[in-house]
Design a protein around this nucleic acid. Structure first.
Lengths: 153, 153
DNA sequence: TCAAGAAAGTTGCAAATGCAACCATTGAAA
DNA sequence: TTTCAATGGTTGCATTTGCAACTTTCTTGA
C-alpha cells in the first residue's frame, strides 16, 4: 500500500485550502457586507444575467451546485434585505423570476471588486505559468468529476 | 473591474471541487465503514504515529486544522466504537494520550487502501506533469495561506 | 508560595445544513 | 380529457457545526 499521510493527501488538502480561502473571502462579504456565502453566490449569479433577462431559483441551484433548500432560504433573505425581487412567471406559475434590485446591483458593484482583489491576492503566490497550470488542472478535475458541462470547457 | 463569473472564480471552484471530492470519499469511509470525515482524519492521524508514540487531541487539532470541539466529539465517538483508547497522561493530567486499538488498526488497514485508490482514481485525469504542477501549486498556496509550517514544505 | 494567565479538553446553545416530505403547477401519455 | 409523473420551490425536522464559556491542570513571575 502506498503510504497515507494526511498532509500529502489531495482530498484533505483541497478541503483545507478551500475552507481557508472561503474564510478569507467571508471577511469581505460577511464581515463588511453582511451576507453569507450562499447569498454571495446568488448575488453574483443574478448580476451575471443580461439586463432584461430573468432567472429562476432553479437556475441558481444548477449553476452554483448548491442545494435547493439553501438557495430557497438565501433568496428569501436577499428579498428581506431588499437586494432581490421575486415576481411570478407568467407562463409557468411554479417558477418565480428573480432579479436584483437597484440596491442589489449597488451591493454587487461594491463587493465584487473587493472580492476579486482578494482572489488576485490569494493566487499572487503563483506566477503566470503556475497559475495557468493550476487552473488547467482544475478544468480537468471538474470535467472528470462531472462538475461542468462539456460545452462549458 | 475584471469580470466576475462564478465558474471562473477560483475560490468557488475550489469549494465545489473539494465538496465533490469529499462526497466521493465519504462513499467509502461513511457508507462502507460508518465513520464520518472527522473520524476518518482522527483514524489516519493516529495510524501515522510511530508504534509506541502516543498522541493528544491537541495534536490532532493542529495537524488536521479541525476545530477542537469537533475533534473532541469525534474522539469520543471513536472510543465508543472501540477504535481508540484514551489514557491519562502522567506528567500532564490535562491532556490524554490517544491510541488506536487493535480494532482501530484493523479498520485503518481496511479503509486506507480503498480511499487511496479513490484518490488515484480522481487524479487519474491528470498526467504526470499536470499532477506535479497541480500539487506544486497547492504547496505554494498552502504556504502563502499559512496552512503549513515552513519546515513541512 | 501564591496569583494570574495559559493550555487541554468538554459542553450548552444557537445557527446552519441536508434530507425528505410536501404543495402547487405543468407536461405527457393513455 | 383524465391521470400520473415530473418540476419548481418551501418547510419541518434531525443532525452537524462553531463559538464561547467553563473546568481542570499547569506554568510563570512577582
Amino acid at each position: 500500500m502506498t503510504e497515507l499521510e494526511l498532509t500529502k493527501f489531495i482530498p484533505f488538502r483541497l478541503n483545507r485550502l478551500a475552507a481557508e480561502v472561503s474564510n478569507k473571502l467571508a471577511e469581505v462579504y460577511t464581515d463588511r457586507f453582511g451576507i453569507d456565502i450562499v447569498e454571495w453566490r446568488i448575488l453574483v449569479t443574478l448580476a451575471a444575467m443580461k439586463s432584461k433577462e430573468s432567472c429562476s431559483a432553479q437556475h441558481i441551484v444548477q449553476s452554483t451546485r448548491t442545494h435547493k433548500s439553501r438557495i430557497s432560504r438565501g433568496v428569501n433573505r436577499m428579498i428581506e434585505l431588499d437586494y432581490v425581487t421575486r415576481t411570478e412567471s407568467r407562463h409557468d406559475r411554479r417558477e418565480a423570476k428573480l432579479r436584483l434590485t437597484a440596491k442589489g446591483r449597488a451591493l454587487h458593484r461594491k463587493v465584487a471588486p473587493v472580492v476579486l482583489e482578494q482572489e488576485r491576492n490569494i493566487v499572487s503566490c503563483l506566477n503566470e505559468q503556475e497559475l495557468q497550470a493550476f487552473t488547467q488542472a482544475l478544468d480537468k478535475l471538474e470535467l472528470s468529476m462531472g462538475l461542468v458541462e462539456q460545452n462549458e470547457v
